[in-house]
C-alpha cells in the first residue's frame, strides 16, 4: 500500500480515524525504521524530551504548539503513549506518522504500557475494539511496540529511559546486548528499564511496590553515571504535580507530559528542552483548552454501528 503520510496526518489531527488497512501499513513501515535502531540510541541536542502522554491527544498537540512543530524541533518521546486516555489510537497513530515523516528527528522509546499484557488491562485494547470493532489495529500496534528501542543518550551526557535502572545493567553496553524484540517480560533487565523508579528512601536497589522493576537510590544513580561517564538520568513513568521532579541533587529527573492526568489530577505537565549548549529547561504547560470541548460522536456505538458495551452488560 502507498501511504500518503501528510494526508494521513491531516486526518488524524482532526481526530478522524484512519482505515484499518492504513493503520496496519503504518505499523509495518514504522517497524522497518525501528528495527535498525540500537537499544541505546545516540542523539545530538537540541532535542525536546517528552514524558508519558497516555492518549491525551489534545495535550500532545499542545506540546507541539508550545515546544515547536516537527521538523523544526527534534523530539524524543520516553514511552507510555497509550492507555488510560480517551485518544490512545489517535496519539500513537500520529506519533507513528511523525516517525515515518521525520525518522531522524522523532524518536520513540518504549514504556511499560507499550505491551500486549498491560494494554489489555489499562484501556488501549478496549479503545481499539470500541473504535474499530475488532482487535486488528491493537494487534498491529502491539506487534510494532516489540520493535521500539529502550533508551537514548543525548550528547553523551543525558541517559534517557522510560522507568529507570536495573541491578543487572551496570554498563550501557549491557543494555545494547538485550534482545528487545519481544513482549516486555515480567522480570529481568528489560522489564527494569521500563518499570523502575528512583526512591529517596533507599540508597541501593529495593523491591518496588509496583510488583515489577526496582526502586533505586542515590548511590545507585551516582555509580551508573560514573561507570558510563554521563551526567544525568532523565526518565518519565511517574505522575508529578508540577510536571517534573528532580531528585538526588538533580542527577535524576522525571518528566511528565500528561496535564490534568485522566481529566482529574489537576497536575501540570512539562517537556524538557535540551539545548545545543547543554542547558536544560523544563517547559511547563497546563491542559489544552480543547479537552473541555470534545464533541461526542459515537453515542454508545462504534464506527460499524455496533454496541460498544462491555460483555458484562449484554
Amino acid at each position: 500500500m502507498v501511504l500518503n503520510i501528510d494526508e494521513c496526518i491531516e486526518h488524524v489531527i482532526k481526530t478522524e480515524l484512519l482505515d484499518e488497512a492504513v493503520v496496519v501499513a503504518i505499523c509495518a513501515k514504522v517497524k522497518e525504521l525501528l528495527v535498525d535502531e540500537s537499544n541505546v540510541i545516540q542523539l545530538a541536542a537540541p532535542v525536546t524530551v517528552v514524558g508519558d502522554v497516555h492518549g491525551q491527544f489534545y495535550d500532545l498537540i499542545e506540546i507541539f504548539r508550545i515546544a515547536g512543530q516537527c521538523p523544526d524541533t527534534n523530539y524524543l518521546f520516553l514511552g507510555d503513549y497509550v492507555d488510560r486516555g480517551y485518544f490512545s489510537v489517535e496519539t500513537i497513530t500520529l506519533l507513528c506518522l511523525m516517525k515515518i515523516r521525520y525518522p531522524q528527528r522523532v524518536h520513540l522509546i518504549r514504556g511499560n504500557h507499550e505491551s500486549r499484557g498491560i494494554t489489555q488491562s489499562y484501556g488501549f485494547y478496549t479503545e481499539c475494539v470500541r473504535k474499530y470493532g475488532s482487535a486488528n489495529v491493537w494487534k498491529s500496534f502491539t506487534d510494532m511496540f516489540d520493535y521500539m528501542t529502550l533508551s537514548a543518550v543525548i550528547d553523551n551526557t543525558v541517559f534517557c529511559v522510560h522507568g529507570g535502572l536495573s541491578p543487572s545493567l551496570v554498563h550501557l553496553d549491557q543494555i545494547k546486548l538485550i534482545d528487545r524484540f519481544r513482549e516486555i517480560p515480567h522480570e529481568g533487565p528489560m522489564a527494569d528499564l521500563v518499570w523502575s523508579d528512583p526512591s529517596p528512601s533507599n540508597n541501593d536497589f529495593a523491591v518496588s511496590p509496583r510488583g515489577a522493576g526496582y526502586t533505586f537510590g542515590k548511590r545507585v544513580a551516582e555509580r551508573f553515571l560514573d561507570v558510563n561517564n554521563v551526567q544525568s538520568i532523565l526518565r518519565a513513568h511517574q505522575l508529578c504535580q508540577n510536571g517534573y521532579q528532580q531528585l538526588f541533587g538533580g542527577i535524576v529527573s522525571t518528566v511528565w507530559s500528561a496535564p490534568n492526568y485522566c481529566y482529574r489530577c489537576g497536575n501540570m505537565a512539562s517537556v524538557l528542552e535540551v539545548s545545543d549548549t547543554g542547558s536544560q529547561f523544563f517547559n511547563v504547560f497546563d491542559a489544552a483548552p480543547e479537552n473541555a470541548k470534545i464533541q461526542e460522536n459515537n453515542d454508545h456505538y462504534n464506527m460499524n454501528g455496533e454496541s460498544i458495551l462491555p460483555d458484562y452488560f449484554v
Binding site: H54, G55, D83, R84, G85, Y86, S121, Y122, G123, T126, E127, L239, Q241, C262, Y263, C265
Partner: peptide, 13 residues
C-alpha cells in the same frame, strides 16, 4: 492527601 488512583485504567475503567 491527593491519593493517586491505584492501578487506574484511566478513562477506560
Amino acid at each position: 492527601f491527593t491519593l493517586e488512583p491505584a492501578g487506574s485504567h484511566g478513562v477506560w475503567g
